[in-house]
Computed example of a mutant assay.
Amino acid sequence: MRMEQADRPVALVSGSTSGIGEAVARRLAGDGMRVVVHSRRSAEAGQALAAELGGAYVRADLAVEEEARGLVEAALGQYGRLDVLVNNAGISWPIPHDDLAAATPADWRQLLEVNLIAPWVLCTAALPALRESPVGGSIVNVTSHAGVRPKGSSVPYAASKAALNHVTRLLAAALGPEVRVNAVAPGLVDTPMTKDWAHAHELWRDRAPMRRPAQPADVADLVASVIASTYLTGEVIVMDGGLNLT
């Protein structure tokens, strides 16, 4: 039986106009959810995607606390409920791990602000609505295998993702049973952000058992499965095509 429009769960996916976030938004909409699309720029792309999916679009700079909280408020204003929060938005740029001087305090602050503090703000803003979800609230943090292994585009980036992995576990312990909190930690994903990372692409082709990086749809499938699994909480699921085995 098809759900009535007002009965369909609502998912907010941050950073969802390209790459992993777009794939997640499309998958959740295909699963019957009403999706709130978000970006910091790309308003035209966001509006087009939201129209295609029958959802809504909100522009917000997540490094600004008021705008991050406003994103949740806009989602609630549009639909009156929020059942799923996918913290996908993140930033990264290459800094050699052994070049300590190159990883400046400004780099640290910017990466932590967007990759760690912004998801925390969204979680806290969304929590009352998630607790009231008739289907059970779910938070999925998109982190990175760099938060599990000594890898990644930079030390500050890896540290931000490691911190978000641990926050995932802490929140799962604190918020259950009303709200489940999990993380999906991909390795290399073939997105516009990583298209010039030639060494990483070579590494995955040569050493990962799957012999390729993930596609955004691969990550979206896992995110959707985590949301659908109503007993799963506190898990950080590494998805790197088996590179962790080598």
Rank of each mutant, 00 (worst) to 15 (best):
R2C: 00
P134A: 07
R8W: 06
G15H: 11
L53C: 14
V238F: 04
S138P: 01
I237S: 10
G15F: 12
L245E: 15
Y57G: 01
R34G: 03
V24Q: 05
D221H: 08
R8C: 03
N88F: 03
A198G: 01
R26D: 03
S153N: 10
A118I: 12
D190L: 11
E202V: 04
L62I: 12
L243M: 05
K151Y: 13
S16Y: 12
P156C: 11
G90S: 09
I20S: 02
V114Q: 12
G152S: 09
G80P: 11
A106R: 15
E73F: 01
V179K: 10
G90H: 01
W108G: 04
R169S: 12
Q215W: 04
R180V: 02
V223D: 03
M239K: 00
L62W: 02
A63M: 10
K161M: 13
L188W: 04
Q215I: 01
D99G: 04
R205F: 08
V226F: 05
L175Q: 06
G80A: 09
E202D: 14
R149L: 14
W93E: 13
I91N: 00
T191P: 02
E67T: 10
V86D: 03
K161N: 11
H201R: 14
G242I: 03
D31N: 07
P186F: 11
E73G: 15
V189F: 04
R207I: 03
V167F: 15
T168F: 05
D98V: 09
G137S: 13
V148P: 04
D218T: 07
D99K: 15
P192M: 10
I227H: 07
E202C: 00
A174L: 12
V24D: 05
D83V: 13
M210E: 10
R212Y: 08
A158G: 13
A102D: 08
S138W: 00
D61V: 10
R169Y: 07
R34D: 02
V135Y: 04
G19W: 03
L76V: 14
V223A: 03
P177T: 09
A162D: 06
S138L: 00
A56C: 11
A6P: 00
A75H: 02
A163V: 09
N88P: 11
V36M: 15
L116P: 03
T194C: 06
R41F: 01
R41C: 06
P96T: 08
M193K: 06
T168Q: 13
L116F: 12
Q5E: 15
D240S: 11
E235D: 09
L245H: 12
D7L: 14
V84F: 06
T246W: 09
Q47A: 15
G80L: 08
E178T: 10
W197N: 14
D83G: 11
P128F: 09
A11L: 05
L100N: 05
R41Y: 00
L127W: 05
G46Y: 02
P134H: 06
R211P: 08
V179S: 05
A101S: 12
